[in-house]
Structures are given as C-alpha cells and as structure tokens.
Design a protein around this nucleic acid. Sequence first.
DNA 1: CCAGTGTGCTAGCAATAGTTAGCACTTTGC
DNA 2: GCAAAGTGCTAACTATTGCTAGCACACTGG
Lengths: 143, 143
Amino acid sequence: MVKATVSGTVGALGDYLKEQRTQSRLSLRQLAEQAGVSNPYLSQIERGLRKPSAEVLQQIAKALRISAEQLYIRAGILSPDDGVGGSVELAVLGDTGLTERQKQSLLDVYASFLALNAADEALAPADSDEPGEADVSTALSDQ
Amino acid sequence: MVKATVSGTVGALGDYLKEQRTQSRLSLRQLAEQAGVSNPYLSQIERGLRKPSAEVLQQIAKALRISAEQLYIRAGILSPDDGVGGSVELAVLGDTGLTERQKQSLLDVYASFLALNAADEALAPADSDEPGEADVSTALSDQ
DNA sequence: CCAGTGTGCTAGCAATAGTTAGCACTTTGC
DNA sequence: GCAAAGTGCTAACTATTGCTAGCACACTGG
C-alpha cells in the first residue's frame, strides 16, 4: 500500500493531525464538525491528499487545542527556529495557564535535559537524528 | 466602489499584512518574491479579496519575520487566549538544545499541567481516562 | 520629450480546495 | 438475523486559490 501524498510535507501534516485526533478520541466526523469542515475533506487532509487553507487549518488546530504553528512545525513545513526563536524560559514564565510551582517544575525538567545533553555532547558529539515517539503521556501528581 | 472584502475577517488580515509590509519598507513585489507568490495575488490578499492558503500565509509570515499565529491574532481571526498557549510549544520545539524525544516529553508534561488546571478551574472532571502512570522523574531518567 | 523602471491593480485562465450524496464496513441492540 | 447508527472512504461537482499577461500611473535621467 503506497502512500499517496500530494507533496512530501503534506503527508507529515496529515499524519500528525490524525495522531492528534485519535489521541483526543475524536472520530473523523466529530472533529470535522468542530472544525467546521466536511468529514470527507478532513479525511483527505489526513491522508495528505489536500492542503487545507489557513482558515481551515486554524479551525482544526483550535478544535484540537493545539497551535497551528505547532502543526506546521511538526509537519515539517515550518522550520522551528525561523523567526520565532522565543526562549523556553520566557515562554514558560509568561504562560498564564500555569501555576508558579508548575513553571518551576517545567523549567527544572528543561534544565535537566539541557544539562544531560551537554554532558552527552562532551562524551559523544555528532548526534542529531532520532525517530522519537516518546509518548510519556503522564498525568503527574498534583502540583 | 463597493467594499469588497470577501468576509469580514479577511480584511483585517490584509490590513495588518500591508501595515507590516510597508513598515518593513518592502514593495509588494519584493515581499511577493520573498514569500514565493505572485505580486497580484499578494495585492489581492492585502485588499481582502483572497484568503491565502496555510502554506502561503506561512511563507508570508516567514518573509515578514513574524509568526503566522500572530498574524491570525492581530487580524482578529484567532482570539489571543484561545487554545493557543502556543508560545511555550513553539519555544520548546524551536529549542535546538533538546532532542525530539525530550521536546515531546516536555510538551507532554506541559499539556498535563494545563489539562490539570483546566479541570480544576471548571470543577468538572470531564476525564478522558488517562492510561499513563509515569512521572516526571521517570521521563527524566529515561531520556 | 520620451525610453526605462518603479509602484500597485485588472482580466482571464488552470489548478485545487472544499462541498454534498452515497458506498462499504463494523458494531450495537431488538 | 437484521435494522440502526457508528466508522472512514469514493465520486462528481462548485467555489476559490494562485498563476501569467498586461494596463495605468508615477518618477527618473538621457
């Protein structure tokens, strides 16, 4: 079964989209209705046969509670560090949806990752690619 | 001269777009070339006659060094504090010091926090049955 | 005065986004 | 066993995107 993507990148978007949808336990029709598009069309987007318009993509992202920009990035359409090079610390601290403790925890984890990588790099340089599907999906204990 | 906006919101996007372009001292053709679209088309977008596709909008935003999400928000298409806690996601995804798996983990934790708070705030469990029992420390040690 | 180049805009066409109607398959309940 | 309602997909059509060619106006400098 060959994959019939219209143009490389779109397939990735569709895959990510579907992944997010199923993870949200939404049926194709449900998401389609929430996003205000027809279900066949959403189906085609997920299979990479169509490229959604800006408005449609926005609606879908909204329905999935994710950023459209993130959708682009994850789909490989937009390079992560183009004009949007916001620092993680600032973004986290400025987030109004997090408590102070949560911010602290998040930044601790972030710092740990960076430290870990720094140590790694010292030992074995030249690491860049990995097919990461690290689904932690953890509901942590109360913060 | 009838006001010829295709649909309310688009006009706003066009206005903001033009504002950004002139502010960057770019001619219509210059921006069009940088964004990889034709100048007549860009013109039409600015006047609210056409709604650009997701890809085109992204290219334009990139050429203007602004976020497409910002474009949406400023144009009034997307409400600022909607589903878009996006800046954290963007910052994390754009961080070159993290591996993909680490980004995923971090964002999962972040999402968990948000979900937790949302549930709290609404005082409505609205639970969707979380399978994972992992914990921050687990996510950490395993990267 | 008029070629040359810059600006943005209009017209008309080709490609494709997004639609409604309906098929095939699976599960649920009577 | 089979209606009913769920899932996703195909097909044919309309509406819109985004293109190329070219116009009208302003500003240069020869």
